[in-house]
């Protein structure tokens, strides 16, 4: 079905503007374009196109199920957003969540990667277990942690009771505990990818330098700072940047855990925009939120990359 659609589309678009640069660039090679088109057309139609369309929508009053034609409203949506305290609150929660997940995720993953690099005996078990959070559907991760956090039947409260640390807390419904509780789940879910990336980075660090530094009497911390970290830095920056982006776009985990509650304490920007678009049908307004998110992420990425380039000099 999909193949047919794609093929028909590629037929319609053959000879489009996409062909011309190749001609100018490399006049002999048409073959390359035939190889590229099957992927390029869906990308343009279903990824680049909708992205641009989404930006356009942000400047309209598009709503779901309305018969009246959609109209341009200029920057009205953005001006409304400026005064939408609920949105900015959600935005703040999104930043707290993204930083609160990304930083511990990185530190914990770094610790685990360093341990796994030591040639300990249980490496195979750690490898096997790391698969679980990575492969699990996010919805199942959410359900699983709901069972752990469950006020009566959950193991967390039971363990706390056994240790004499009180208990009977309803972690996901408590105004103060809901956000930390979902952050912990976020850390758990993203740790394996980060660990694998860092471990690979570690295995690229020069062994001889390590041994030489150890012979010179450098302690573990000094060896880490002067030998390991410089080699690991590019990987670390790349994976934290990606983690931050993925976390700020997170949806399923929190949707299942709390649905954004209690009282909006865990309503991440994605949940907010989802409700705006698909519960209240405010397409234009939700698209404007998406644009603001993209803008903020781009700025943060630019800052991140700039600092990375400076660091490399």
């Amino acid at each position: 079905m999909t193949l047919l659609t794609t093929a028909r589309r590629s037929g319609e678009n053959a000879g489009g503007p996409a062909h011309r640069p190749a001609h100018r660039h490399r006049p002999t090679d048409h073959g390359a374009w035939f190889l590229v088109l099957p992927a390029l057309i869906p990308i343009l139609l279903l990824s680049v196109g909708p992205l641009l369309y989404g930006v356009v929508l942000a400047f309209t009053d598009a709503q779901s199920g309305r018969t009246r034609a959609t109209q341009w409203v200029g920057t009205l949506n953005f001006r409304d957003l400026l005064h939408d305290t609920l949105f900015w609150e959600s935005f703040r929660i999104g930043l707290v969540w993204a930083v609160g997940v990304t930083v511990p995720q990185f530190l914990l993953a770094l610790g685990l990667a360093l341990l796994l690099d030591q040639g300990l005996r249980l490496r195979w078990l750690a490898r096997a277990l790391a698969i679980i959070p990575w492969a699990m559907p996010e919805v199942v991760v959410g359900i699983m942690w709901r069972l752990v956090y469950h006020p009566d039947a959950g193991i967390l409260n039971e363990t706390l009771r056994d240790l004499g640390l009180g208990g009977g807390r309803d972690w996901l419904s408590g105004l103060a505990t809901a956000l930390p509780a979902v952050v912990l789940v976020g850390v758990w879910a993203g740790m394996p990818q980060t660990t694998v990336a860092l471990l690979a980075g570690l295995q690229n660090t020069p062994r001889e330098l390590h041994e030489a530094a150890a012979l010179d009497g450098a302690g573990a911390w000094r060896r880490f700072r002067t030998v390991t970290w410089p080699a690991l830095r590019p990987v670390a920056l790349a994976i934290t940047a990606l983690n931050f982006i993925w976390n700020i776009n997170a949806f399923a985990l929190v949707y299942v855990l709390t649905g954004g509650g209690p009282g909006g304490r865990t309503r991440l920007p994605m949940l907010f925009a989802y409700e705006e678009a698909f519960r209240y049908g405010q397409f234009g307004y939700a698209a404007a939120m998406g644009c603001v998110l993209v803008a903020v992420i781009s700025v943060l990425l630019a800052v991140h990359l700039a600092s990375r380039l400076r660091g490399d000099e």
């Binding site: 279903l46 909708p50 989404g54 397409f283 939700a286 998406g290 644009c291 998110l293």
Partner: peptide
């Protein structure tokens, strides 16, 4: 770049298309 898409910006147009 595609890693940085907020899905919500893409899903609304995709939904309409």
């Amino acid at each position: 770049v595609s890693q940085a898409f907020p899905f919500v910006l893409v899903i609304i147009p995709l939904f309409l298309v």
